[in-house]
Nucleic acid binder design. Sequence first.
DNA 1: TGTACATCAGTGAACGCGCGTTCACTGATGTAC
DNA 2: TGTACATCAGTGAACGCGCGTTCACTGATGTAC
Lengths: 236, 236
Amino acid sequence: MAAMTDSAPRTARALAREQLTSAILDTARRQLGEVGPAALSVRSVARELGMASSATYRYFPTRDALLTALIVAAFDDVGQAVEDADAGVRRGDHRGRWRAVAHALRAWAREHPHEYALVYGSPVPGYAAPTDTVGPATRVPRVLLGLLRDAEQAGAQPARGPRLPAAEKAALAPVIALVEPPLSPAYTVRGLTAWATVFGHLSLELFGHMHNGVLDYDAHWAQVVDVLATDLGLGR
Amino acid sequence: MAAMTDSAPRTARALAREQLTSAILDTARRQLGEVGPAALSVRSVARELGMASSATYRYFPTRDALLTALIVAAFDDVGQAVEDADAGVRRGDHRGRWRAVAHALRAWAREHPHEYALVYGSPVPGYAAPTDTVGPATRVPRVLLGLLRDAEQAGAQPARGPRLPAAEKAALAPVIALVEPPLSPAYTVRGLTAWATVFGHLSLELFGHMHNGVLDYDAHWAQVVDVLATDLGLGR
DNA sequence: TGTACATCAGTGAACGCGCGTTCACTGATGTAC
DNA sequence: TGTACATCAGTGAACGCGCGTTCACTGATGTAC
């Protein structure tokens, strides 16, 4: 008679299913952190959980489905970390927000190098990402764009750059439209450039291409983030 | 009596060995271009060449050795392309050189996406690069640094940025020392940042992370290269 | 120039491995009456 | 509340595959005298 607390799992079965699903996901995630995306195997996950490998097929119909779930989880994880970092800084402190976001992104990448590689590294051979991953993938860019929009609304101006051809303005339409009110094209170009710089630095650092050039990644990263903040015309 | 033209291969055996070695390498390269680094297999290369898989072990003692040779070849290939591009422009035209170099780099990456992934993407699982790859890997950075040094010697100045802490100057010592006379730290920071931007852009583009944001990669790339040229204080 | 021996290239079979996925099955849980 | 049937979860064996690498071998090429 009293209304049930009817969130999804009501029966014992549904509850068990929910738990095992996330147990599989957690284990897969742990193993991913050890062997990397290409070597992730259904059998080995099942082995660690002490179940028959065929049993996992009740939960993920295919290895690709498991990978997709991991990708979504990784995007959500980094998205959350970045959103939290952004939320922890006073709205008007745009440079502070940028720093916090950049720091959170790098910290996440260094703590989860294989997950970073899974979502931002070379594509996993034979795997084609379904559209489910698109939404979670935009969380990080949204934070960055939102912060730039706030800065621009507050009167910030990016460093001067070359003129913007009409072709380039047209090319950027989808990004520009991601936030409301929309970013100016000039700001968008700077934002995309900074975005590339950040991911370029992280990839070069994580994949070992700076070993012979830079002695102190922390110091250099801080400097790069500050250079970008200046180019983006963020406060201070 | 007449002095022999004694470059390395004199006997029929040595000649055959040289030819088969490069036949294996070429085939491996072709297959790499189709399946990517992680899926590259000794057996499949041998199959395509019509030889027993065990025979390849006379030439490359291990799969890793084959991968290493491919990595070196890829670095040399892109290094050559970039050096040629640089050499094709009048020395004093620093912006032109930068553009040519950037264009060559992207063209190479787009023509050889799997080789790009091999050398600049996520590490191949279970593979540890030996020191043989270090030399070829520096060809591209050397071109970039050389061009920046020329620009700086000619009086170019990078866009203003934040002050450089002593820790950062120290961190950059190895890069700074790569060219003679050495680059200023401020210029080095800008150079490294541009380097990260370029590779970040290429990785995001090649690995499909710009699909939903940018409509015209060519236009956007041209713009990014120009923005970087401006930030690097290169002519025009 | 010819012979005897050493070196090398290539073969095919085999070892041992792990993988993704399917299938017929048993037993437990849920549902309708 | 109890019974009959349907649904689901988990098992273990099996299929078929491809991989890296080793090994004993045969036959060709090179070298020393």
